[in-house]
Amino acid sequence: MNPSSSAVIQMKDLRKSFGTQKVMDGLDLEIPRGKITVIIGRSGEGKSVLLKTMIGLIFPDSGKVLIEGTDMLELSGQGQNEMRKKFGMLFQNAALFDSMNVFDNVAFPLRQHSHLEEDEIEVKVLDKLAKVGLKNVGHKMPSELSGGMRKRVGLARALMLDPEIILYDEPTTGLDPILTDSIDNLILETQKSFGLTSVIVSHDIRSTIKMADKIAMLYEGRILSEGSPESFRESKDPRIQNFLQGKADKDFIG
């Protein structure tokens, strides 16, 4: 089997600057099919930008983003839109539609892309909401929810269409330890039962080690290191060890 067929997403030599700030600087990364890839890295290092590049929300200044071999950047607006049907995405800030209540937010992808009747939609939506630990919140507006609740509504919405590829931007940041564990389990469960490809951006080292098939560490616009959780734990690179153990550099004040 040639190596590219096992990679769902291939990113080649990506470069991206915002003004004078280089966020991606020759970044190469492959996301293996049917696996959980966790992207780690310092805050502001460009993890969210990287996720948005995968799904074509941010366009790199140069480089390639291949989704199952097709270059996202060469597609028309409509082609990209079609391509995004393969994806589900949980945004870091959840990005709920603030003009719709929770129920309509979660039902939105179904109403757009399925021909289900309203009563079938209701069953599915309530089921997904229950899976993320939310009950009796369907009528609430996003502004009436806590940050953690919003994140879980976003998660339910991202999972709604059972996409092939799911991008999670910090799915458990801001959740209590018990919820974190149950969301981790939900992600694992979804992964196992549908054989999805998952990409998770996470700051939670413990669950990263527990869940990841592959870890990629972003550092100064490139992938510093990628590999199994074991290879990360055994790495001699001080930058990786400091990150895993949460040690600040000596010259870092804060």
Partner: peptide, 23 residues
């Protein structure tokens, strides 16, 4: 104001991510 707010709060990106083109 409405579309602008949706843009800066990533709701427009969320639409795109669900393969619903904002235009």
């Amino acid at each position: 104001a409405e579309i602008g707010t949706m843009t800066v709060t990533e709701q427009v990106d969320a639409l795109k991510s669900m393969a619903v083109h904002p235009i």
